[in-house]
Simulated assay, not measured.
Amino acid sequence: MYTDILVPTDGSESSAAAVEHGIEIASPHAATVHFLHAVDVGTEMSASGLGNIAPDLTETLESEAEDALDDAVARAEESDVAYERTVLEGVPHEVIAEYSTENEIDLIVMGASGRSGLADHLLGSSTDRVVRSVETSVLIARPS
């Protein structure tokens, strides 16, 4: 039923729950889990793709992305689940939707909330936006 499962992760408690769910679903199906971190560099992208933020901040965000992915990958390896890891720049819900389409994802597993805090409550979370913008099934995971 599932061949490719996308788990966007930001290192939050909710995304850690999504990682666990994604791995649990992938294991009996011999599916590949695609761990994705979208580095939100702002709405104005420069021609270089680095956005309109300072290089030090970009480096910090990319380091946080790698840390979140390292944790997810370690869990997949412990469970002997095939995985891919990707860091992309852009607006998270747009990056997730595009990745899902381009990689023919069968299921997206996302945390109920992430690290963006108050902005999520005012604007709607990335999870809400993904659910509304993709044709792929989405499982929303909550921490225990």
Rank of each mutant, 00 (worst) to 15 (best):
A68Q: 01
E59Y: 14
E59F: 07
L50N: 09
E62I: 00
A82G: 10
V81G: 04
E62F: 06
A65V: 04
A72P: 05
S79Y: 06
R75F: 03
V87A: 03
T43P: 07
E77M: 08
L61R: 04
G49S: 03
D56G: 09
D56M: 06
L50Q: 04
H34T: 04
D80Q: 14
S48D: 09
L57C: 03
V39P: 02
I53V: 10
T43Y: 13
L88Y: 10
V81T: 07
H34R: 13
E62C: 11
V73N: 07
S79A: 15
A76T: 04
D70V: 04
E62M: 11
A82E: 10
A65G: 09
A38Q: 08
A65Q: 06
E89V: 10
S46P: 00
G49R: 10
D70P: 00
T60D: 10
E62D: 14
R85Q: 15
F35T: 08
A38Y: 04
A82H: 10
V81L: 07
L57R: 14
L36I: 12
A47Y: 09
L88V: 12
A38D: 14
I53T: 02
D40V: 03
E89N: 15
E44N: 08
A38C: 14
V41Q: 03
S46G: 08
S63D: 15
V73T: 13
L36F: 05
N52F: 04
E89C: 10
E77F: 03
Y83Q: 06
G49W: 05
E59A: 10
G49E: 11
A65D: 05
G51I: 05
L50G: 03
A82I: 02
G49V: 05
P55R: 14
T43Q: 12
A74L: 15
V81S: 05
V41S: 02
L61T: 00
T43W: 13
L61C: 01
V39N: 06
L69Q: 09
S46Y: 01
D67K: 15
L57M: 08
L57P: 00
D70Q: 12
D80P: 03
V73G: 11
I53W: 03
A38V: 08
M45T: 09
L50D: 12
G42K: 05
E62Y: 04
V73Q: 06
D40G: 15
V87K: 09
A68V: 00
V73E: 13
R85L: 00
E84N: 15
A38M: 12
D71V: 13
A76Q: 02
V87R: 13
S63V: 12
S46E: 04
T60H: 15
E66A: 07
V73Y: 13
V39E: 01
H37W: 06
A38E: 10
A68K: 02
A68S: 15
L61N: 00
E77R: 13
R75I: 11
E66F: 03
D71R: 07
D71F: 00
H34K: 09
V41M: 06
S46R: 06
V41Y: 08
T58K: 12
V41A: 10
A82L: 13
S46K: 02
E77K: 11
G42T: 04
D70W: 07
S79N: 14
E62N: 04
G51P: 12
